[in-house]
Design a protein around this nucleic acid. Structure first.
Lengths: 208, 208
DNA sequence: TGTGTAAGTAAGTGACTACTTGCATTTCTT
DNA sequence: AAGAAATGCAAGTAGTCACTTACTTACACA
């Protein structure tokens, strides 16, 4: 493993455990199996290192995608919600730390908000497409609906460990349950609807 | 103002701005207009002071209450949601910090989770009461529904400042909008229903 | 007037922090 | 094999941190 990458990974790990102030260069060096000096020669300063580590992390973060043409909303949204939730849970420590430090270090904000921003956009587009298909019967505001589902998933991922009795059991089904509540609020009926040939082709083009 | 209270208030404020590691005894003493030594004589250590400040804070936190007998769900839930959201927004800094530090200082957890725990309980009870009145027509799981509304409110209070375009506008109406989405998911129809005499009496008894 | 208590002042302790310098060693490239 | 670049080691700098000690001041109450 490259020394540079080892340092970046160690910095991310230590930051997730101890936050910025608790991420001493010594701790990071030890975690990376590297001399403390090497950090300064590679990155110049602790601040530059942490910044680089955060960017390196968000760049490597993949997010599941929703189809452009909805076919089976409950299934598609559930899969997507589950993958989003898994991502949040996997990174819950670093997310909590970043949220706590964002007021003192606003430059972290751009980095930290990228994933939820994209998630919100993707979800809104999907819901608008559903509406265009005439499958949303209720009066409807995409951002409100999206904020509810994403908010529920986010809070679950952040808070379940601290207060498990506040959330539905088991945690593996939570994303599915939230999704169903949302779909019921929108008046979307269960079951899939076959996409037309034309739609299928277009969807395949777009997904490449 | 009592010196002790001044120190507690200053500690809470400094902690909200800088977190535990950033809350130096000097900063707290300056903010309280008190000599640094006084802190150690009064509280023994920085850790004890911060703990005392957190407890002092949660004790003084009031939460709006929901009626035992639902009458006008949309109005009652909206008022309650708005008050809960206002509370979260008011304390967003300290909540974010506490969430970030909870893994390093688990004893903060009991303190931090008290308010959301009570909120979740209150909301679940209210929803169950609604169900018992036969006003929830859909298949229904109280905790899931509660987690969705509370999650949306929590995420809004924590995240709107960072990424306002992810949330419904204007922010003053957000709590109302989330509430309406939830009620639609539960199949609760609009409008109030008069409580019977019997119910009214019982509700009055319980609220004392 | 004397006494106890809470507060302030001044100085300092030992541990830790980010970061630097000088020099020896390893590793990679050519 | 030769030169260059990356890395390690030892030592040190200037600053901050929580916390202590020894002594002084202000005030309440008896």
């Amino acid at each position: 493993m490259n020394h540079r990458d080892a340092i970046l990974a160690a910095a991310a790990g230590v930051f997730a455990q101890h936050g910025f102030r608790g991420s001493t260069t010594r701790r990071i060096a030890d975690a990376a199996g590297v001399n403390e000096i090497t950090i300064f020669r590679q990155f110049g300063s602790k601040e530059a290192l942490i910044r680089a580590a955060m960017q390196h992390l968000t760049q490597s973060a993949g997010l599941a995608t929703l189809p452009d043409i909805p076919s089976d909303p409950e299934r598609e949204l559930t899969v997507w919600s589950e993958s989003f939730m898994q991502h949040l849970r996997l990174h819950s420590s670093i997310i909590r730390k970043t949220m706590g430090e964002i007021e003192e270090r606003p430059e972290m904000g751009e980095c930290a908000t990228e994933v939820p921003r994209r998630a919100s956009n993707d979800l809104c587009h999907y819901l608008v497409a559903l509406k265009r298909q005439g499958r949303i019967t209720e009066k409807f505001e995409a951002k409100t609906a999206a904020a509810m589902l994403l908010g529920a998933i986010f809070s679950d991922a952040m808070g379940r460990e601290m207060m498990p009795e506040n959330f539905p059991q088991p945690k593996e089904k939570a994303a599915h349950m939230y999704t169903r509540v949302l779909l019921r609020a929108l008046g979307v009926e269960n079951g899939s609807r076959k996409a037309t040939n034309k739609q299928t082709k277009r969807s395949k083009q777009l997904s490449n």
